[in-house]
Design a protein around this nucleic acid. Sequence first.
DNA 1: GCTAAAAGCTAACATCATTAGCTTGAGTGT
DNA 2: ACACTCAAGCTAATGATGTTAGCTTTTAGC
Lengths: 192, 192
Amino acid sequence: MPVPRAGLDAATVVAAGAELADEIGFAELTMARLAERVGVKAPSLYKHVAGQDDLNRRIAALALAEVADTLGTAIQGRSGRDALGAAARALRRYVLDHPGRYAATAGLTATGPEDPIAIAAAQGIAPFAAVLRGYDITPDQMPHALRSLRSVFHGFATLQATDSFQWSADVDDSFDWLIDLVDRGLRATPAP
Amino acid sequence: MPVPRAGLDAATVVAAGAELADEIGFAELTMARLAERVGVKAPSLYKHVAGQDDLNRRIAALALAEVADTLGTAIQGRSGRDALGAAARALRRYVLDHPGRYAATAGLTATGPEDPIAIAAAQGIAPFAAVLRGYDITPDQMPHALRSLRSVFHGFATLQATDSFQWSADVDDSFDWLIDLVDRGLRATPAP
DNA sequence: GCTAAAAGCTAACATCATTAGCTTGAGTGT
DNA sequence: ACACTCAAGCTAATGATGTTAGCTTTTAGC
């Protein structure tokens, strides 16, 4: 398998795209700019990536995988409210550190269960499941609890990422408050 | 003030853009397509709207105002868990009915307090504040509670809008579960 | 060394947003 | 009634974009 004049690779291109998106914003990420960044002309990118849409989806999948990894290590050795707080803080930190990649995950529709995005998203659930194991959740309530956790965290992270909080109150305090809210709600879960 | 060969207006253009975005998706909304929709050539749109970015922001502001209105009427005559559920359900319905407009509100950064987006967003808070009045929230906790509510609802609505829930469990049930979770958390709010 | 295939290139095209400048038509003041 | 104004809409042009087609080059394996 010949590998000419390279240093370039699908993974490398996607990684560079994610990095560039973090720097200049996801909306400003363009094939031409990415090509220049990796030292290549725009059409050459198509040897590694099917197009802009494919690139975006791969960046999103990368971000989701990284989030899953980050959250997984964040909750290791913790449980209950402690794990909840650690996971939440890790996600927030990730979004602040990688706003471009994370923005790529917004507004995506998985084409099917085989879509890398769907797979990455499914893996991203695992840490949340681990957190919930510290609470009294019956198995039949697990899917609802997972979706709820995901909604809460995703909602706060995106609002924060887009700078949608306009008042002066400290965002960290609000985040702690939100975590406490969820923790209270989870601990008060009734067994129906 | 002469008003020639018309039927066109800034508000009309924005409304048509929002409608078109709902039909074909926000990402597919283009100046050319919108021009064709309103029966005009693309450059003519610039007589009513400063450009694509301006158009997007105006659509977002429209959506935020509509959301505020919808939520406001949804909670009238209700309070507590009842108001919470009604507001949540109204938002969800809105996002499902108007996915394009709502997508326009994601990933926007208000340029300042005078930005129509900031104003519309501020008005959108009011219904949430009304809901929270039915719970025991101290004034200094209000901002945190508002942000939390916004995060929760926005998170679930966007995940749902982008079809990010892949498992088979009924989404409506999950939504009810989430509302209960928040309700329990709010009722258990401690007085610090 | 020779060959095959992948990587990268140039050229070209369609589409898009946007600007500049012209044309036209409706309302206003006399 | 009539001319004047000025904004709505147009055509033409520009630069940037994503993308495709086809050519050239480089490297790995025989």
